[in-house]
Design a binder for these strands. Structure first.
Length: 242
DNA sequence: GCGACAG
DNA sequence: ATCTTGTCGC
């Protein structure tokens, strides 16, 4: 029997409703390790086109530990909510969720561009996505949303705690010397320490871990792959698997 | 009331 | 996030 998972909640574009949802969902986020064998890791990132009118979600699936790309999905969807600090997931997840529906392989771990629980109400985009898909997830942010931290030693692999309201919500990790550190945090079913470990394991020669870096390249850059299909050929095609 | 503010 | 060329430095 195929049972279709019921969605966590109805979507909304109302700020107050979104905040209320975050408060009720945050307690359900699992902050300890509840992760099995990892065969595939997904990198998730969102980009925008036409001045923000269109949201472009990209999911890259990599095999572990080879880190070879085994699948990529690019999905476009009309943007229906503005960017509001703290409500990022409500703007970017709709497109991402539809991208996941296109996958032929479900990953065992997610690495999302943005915060996990390092969020004012402890439900950043990585936590929200992990909770929705019920998959282990790690938040990989490039800048700070909230919380305070000491200066990070300029040595690859070193990190300091990110604290907010008397609680450690993440870690600020130096993934490359002389380069701005990354803000790592639990998304779902992965502890902070394990999250940092996975990020380090996925580093090559760049600032970002491979899953996020690959997704980022495709989502942000307007290259040959990012090219929209010919309007005359297939006007309705907004999804590309390659 | 005054800043701060993921992508 | 996005608009954008070249340029300085490890």
């Amino acid at each position: 029997m195929t049972s279709k998972r019921q969605p966590l909640h109805e979507w909304t574009v109302d700020p107050d409703t979104a905040i209320a949802l975050q408060k009720s969902l945050a307690p359900r986020v699992v902050r300890h390790d509840e992760i099995g064998d990892v065969e595939h890791i997904a990198g998730v990132d969102i980009g925008f086109e036409e001045g923000g009118e269109t949201t472009r979600a990209v999911v890259v699936i990599m095999r572990w530990p080879s880190l070879e790309i085994v699948e990529r999905v690019l999905h476009r969807k009309p943007t229906q909510m503005p960017y509001i600090p703290g409500l990022l997931s409500f703007r970017e997840l709709p497109a991402a969720l539809e991208a996941f529906e296109q996958l032929s392989v479900m990953p065992d771990l997610l690495m999302v561009d943005g915060m996990g629980i390092a969020h004012p109400r402890r439900l950043g985009i990585a936590a929200h996505l992990g909770l929705w898909l019920d998959l282990p997830a790690i938040g990989v942010g490039k800048s700070r949303l909230c919380g305070q931290h000491d200066e990070v030693p300029d040595s690859r692999g070193h990190w300091v705690a990110l604290t907010h309201r008397n609680e450690t919500i993440g870690g600020v990790l130096r993934t490359r010397e002389r380069v701005k550190p990354l803000y790592i945090s639990t998304g779902h079913r992965v502890s902070l320490e394990t999250s940092i470990d996975w990020v380090m394991q996925c580093l090559t020669r760049y600032k970002l871990p491979e899953p996020t870096r690959q997704a980022d390249r495709i989502a942000s850059r307007r290259t040959a792959e990012t090219r929209r299909p010919e309007e005359s050929a297939a006007p309705e095609q907004n999804t590309l698997s390659f």
